[in-house]
Design a protein around this nucleic acid. Structure first.
Lengths: 235, 235
DNA sequence: CAGTGGTCTAGACCACGTG
DNA sequence: ACGTGGTCTAGACCACTGA
């Protein structure tokens, strides 16, 4: 039942922030004064404050004090997995094509490649039941001796494809989300006969040195994909 | 130049994780053994480990040890602001309508309202230069004595609208992103004559007690909005 | 039982910012 | 000079897991 002291300190300060008693920019009591009011040692107070700093509620400035932050209300946490997006889960895939290509100019730009570097192209269709709900293209920069595993190519998400030869911790990812109308090829693949918008998600993968190692574009039928995100605060 | 010891410990363990020497599920050395190898006290080691825990690299289990996590490669950080999305920044707005309404059934469901609760409806158009690029609807649950400020209604983002009467720290937010075709009304507002998809972003706001307090839907012309997100790892 | 992580103390020295 | 936060020590007691 008894919360650790540092948790009590956290709750106390959060309550004061939530209630508006402490507003963004306000100074919170100094560490020494918190030691006195809670009757604990400084390390205990600091443990609580460190967590509040980490959760984004306050910032500590050496020599001055700790201050309530402006809340970052534009920040959200998004979970994205091309195999399982909101309304639909992909339960089957069809491999359309796998080949090693020399990148087009656009791709060279996008992946920051020299023109003689080869790229693995994987085209897939995603099915939910018997319905094709998404068309997927992956471009993976080819390294000599790179293991290409059948299972991942057929069923894997993009990070899974590359997890076999790099630690996933070292990978940076970027997503770009947009709405587009399908071109003729995609209309054919997804059997689209009337105006049906696509939710397009571009995934870019980078290694620890910030070099691009892959580009993935997934085209979801508009009525088969919704992405969800939620605010990170209120932990 | 000299990094604090706890930072050195962090770097050391991160390096071992990135290189693959420590794989997900592996145990990292115990706190006491890290004390010896780095020649520091236990609190210093614990400070480093606490940060690695917080950044998601490891998990500590009392009585057992600390272990490398499975990387959460589906998690991204998304920044969303209806006034400034990727390619386009809104530099002007037009207020179409502000009124207080009784919620429709659908809205009652969505905002979890009793039928007699009133709702403020704000309809706006967003312009980039002279071009209408987005249509925006906000539904705010009406509370007695709620200040309704002209400036926020005209120019504010959704969180800004409500920041006047609640601490933004206490607000939870959810986004739903989808692609849709415009209905007749929106086509008119945005002067859409040929098939142009919309990127639709629904924002839901909740107070600290998890009660819905607002719903916002923004319809972006497909060629005027891209959303960006990036992985949270590699801090 | 010995080893692990979780909490906590009562000091210390430092660099920084303000008067 | 004084108060602030940043780093660090050398102990302590606890609850938990595993042999």
């Amino acid at each position: 039942m008894e919360l650790p002291v540092y948790q009590q300190i956290i709750e106390d300060i959060k309550k004061r922030i939530f209630s508006g008693e402490l507003k963004p920019g306000d100074a919170i009591p100094s560490e020494n004064s918190l030691c006195e009011t809670f009757g604990v040692s400084r390390m205990t107070v600091r443990k609580g404050l460190a967590i509040l700093v980490n959760e984004g509620y306050i910032t500590s400035i050496p020599g001055k004090g700790s201050f309530v932050n402006e809340p970052d209300f534009e920040k959200y946490t998004l979970y994205f997995n091309e195999m399982s997006t909101g309304v639909t889960t992909i339960d089957n895939t069809k491999l359309i094509e796998v080949k090693i290509i020399l990148p087009t100019n656009k791709l060279q730009m996008s992946l920051n490649l020299s023109s003689n570097k080869k790229v693995i192209l994987v085209k897939r269709l995603f099915y939910s039941g018997s319905e094709a709900v998404a068309y997927d293209e992956k471009y993976l920069v080819y390294y000599k001796g790179m293991p290409v595993v059948e299972k991942e190519i057929k069923y894997g998400t993009f990070p899974e494809m590359i997890s076999k030869f790099t630690s996933l911790f070292a990978i940076k990812k970027e997503l770009t989300i947009s709405a587009q109308m399908p071109d003729q090829q995609i209309s054919k693949y997804l059997s689209l006969y009337n105006a049906m918008p696509l939710l397009v998600v571009e995934q870019r993968l980078f290694n620890a040195q910030d070099n691009p190692i892959g580009l993935g574009i997934t085209y979801f039928k508009g009525d088969n994909c919704k992405l969800f995100a939620s605010s990170s605060f209120t932990d």
